[in-house]
């Protein structure tokens, strides 16, 4: 009797946890939506999405979000250019070349990288990476996109290498055997059989990492600066969407003004971008499950 009662209570408690999680998410979405509607009542949606000047705190105010989006995309692009090749090399080495013992030692160490607080990465960018870049390219501004992109790249590296390693390991051993039985070398097996066979899951890993890079806040706030601008260069100061939200949240901006509402509009856009990435990423993963790979 008692055990059944305990079963029942545990069941309820666990269900409650699920409900709370879902509710919290819903509340966040509703709040983002509600405040954003207030914003879009004053600023037309197209002015926001397609405007090329982001000066909500200056007069005359301008609410074109593109400079922030470009800033964010620079970080995303730069970090993936660093993390993807490195991550693939690490995963290939761990999965196809390293001994089991080496792999089981190194993989957890790599995952520790993912546990370092992001503010430390930001500090690392500012005090270590930026000076190096400035030595190489003296024109580089103190705050610059390159430094932030590099540390965000390092930040998402464990995620990419770990997910890619999982993807390679999930491939059936019979696939490798089939290739070796044709006289293939380890390198040919890794590059021509394993990598293409795991392509969809590698794609999923990249997209999940992209969504992490889009949402990354502390490092870019510290290292990339606060200059919303549309440009192609990586050596100048930019501002990402997340860094802008930090700036407004910390500043002495009246909580009822349009300036404050910009936070919600930018936040909503950010949420939609990461949501789309996650949906695509998960779609990739379920697609490959169907193929039994």
């Amino acid at each position: 009797m008692l055990s059944r009662w305990i079963d029942h209570t545990v069941h309820l408690l666990l269900a409650l946890c699920v409900v709370i999680t879902i509710l919290t998410t819903l509340v966040v979405i509703v709040l983002l939506g509600k405040e954003s509607i207030l914003f879009f009542q004053q600023v037309p949606l197209w002015d926001f999405l397609l405007g090329t000047r982001w000066e909500p705190l200056l007069e005359p105010k301008s609410f074109g979000v593109l400079p922030l989006v470009v800033g964010t995309l620079k970080i995303v692009f730069g970090s993936i250019v660093i993390a993807l090749p490195l991550g693939l090399l690490i995963a290939t080495y761990l999965s196809e070349f390293a001994s089991t013992r080496f792999r089981s030692t190194v993989k957890p160490v790599l995952e520790i990288l993912a546990g370092i607080p992001t503010v430390v990465y930001g500090y690392f960018a500012l005090t270590f990476v930026t000076p190096i870049i400035r030595t190489l390219f003296p024109d580089t501004q103190i705050f610059n996109a390159a430094s932030a992109a590099i540390v965000v790249g390092i930040m998402i590296l464990p995620m990419i290498s770990s997910l890619c390693d999982d993807a390679f390991q999930a491939l059936p051993g019979s696939l490798r055997e089939g290739a070796y039985a044709l006289g293939a070398t380890q390198f040919e097996v890794a590059v021509q059989v394993i990598l293409p066979s795991a392509a969809a899951r590698v794609g999923a890993a990249v997209i999940l990492a992209l969504s992490r890079a889009i949402g990354e806040t502390m490092a870019v706030t510290l290292a990339a600066g606060a200059t919303p601008q549309i440009s192609l260069g990586f050596l100048e100061s930019i501002q990402t969407m997340t860094a802008y939200i930090v700036q407004v949240s910390l500043g002495d901006i009246p909580a009822d003004g349009i300036e404050y509402l910009t936070c919600y509009a930018v936040g909503l856009l950010l949420f939609i971008m990461t949501l789309i990435m996650n949906i695509i990423g998960n779609h990739f993963i379920t697609q490959t499950r169907k193929l039994h790979l």
Partner: peptide, 29 residues
């Protein structure tokens, strides 16, 4: 292994086209 080929318990074609499956071995060698 180029001279002594092997066929396994379970069919294990590569997730490539039929054509590429056949020519992959000769091609890399």
């Amino acid at each position: 292994r180029q001279k002594i080929g092997m066929v396994f318990q379970r069919p294990n074609p590569f997730p490539k086209s039929i054509y590429k499956n056949v020519i992959w071995g000769p091609k890399i060698n």
